[in-house]
């Protein structure tokens, strides 16, 4: 669980990560997709999507041996029971996230908003990726696994999705 030197570097020297991103040519986009919100938030079913490498302990961990990352995803229930989930992601220091998953995946906060009537409801499932993806895994992500997640969100009749990184 001890973070690697690279993890430490990216966590403590933000400009290094920014420079890495500046050379990340494969992902530059021109046009931007757009779907407006259709109802008041108080009627919306909301899902969370994280790239922080969260998964249930009985799901296969993300592949840390492949230097170009792992474009697969895991389905998560709306409540994470203590001891039933973990994080597999060697590219950031996730000790704090293991202490409180809400700092990367705020399911408890989302549930509180639903209880307060500020959103309609919490979606029946949420989705987790491991955000360090490069090379041939980028088209696999954009052409296969991300559209799959979009399809599952549609099947769950989700009205809005909040995404967050590690």
């Amino acid at each position: 669980m001890r973070p690697s030197f690279l993890t430490w570097l990216f966590s403590h020297v933000p400009w290094l990560a920014e420079r890495w991103a500046a050379h990340y040519e494969g992902v530059k986009s021109a046009d931007v997709p757009w779907t407006p919100l259709r109802k008041p938030l108080a009627q919306c079913r909301v899902a969370l999507v994280t790239t922080a490498g969260v998964h249930l302990t009985d799901q296969p961990p993300f592949d840390m041996k492949d230097k170009q990352g792992d474009p697969s995803f895991r389905e998560l229930p709306p409540t994470l029971e203590p001891g039933r989930w973990t994080i597999t992601h060697d590219y950031y220091d996730h000790r704090d996230a293991l202490a409180d998953v809400n700092i990367v995946l705020p399911l408890d906060r989302l549930r509180e908003l639903a209880a307060a009537g500020e959103i309609g409801e919490v979606a029946p499932r949420h989705f987790s990726f491991m955000g360090h993806i490069d090379g041939p895994h980028i088209p696999e992500l954009t052409g296969r696994t991300a559209p799959q997640v979009a399809g599952l969100l549609q099947a769950d009749r989700v009205d809005a999705a909040v995404l967050a990184p590690a």
């Binding site: 990560a17 757009w34 992500l141 399809g151 809005a160 999705a161 995404l163 967050a164």
Partner: peptide
């Protein structure tokens, strides 16, 4: 990139980012 695919398929999305350069590119 994941966000764009979800939005493309008709679900409004918002992301929180801590890497501005990457978000500007994507």
């Amino acid at each position: 990139l994941i966000q764009r695919e979800i939005e493309q398929r008709g679900i409004p999305t918002i992301s929180v980012t801590i890497n501005r350069t990457l978000t500007e590119a994507v």
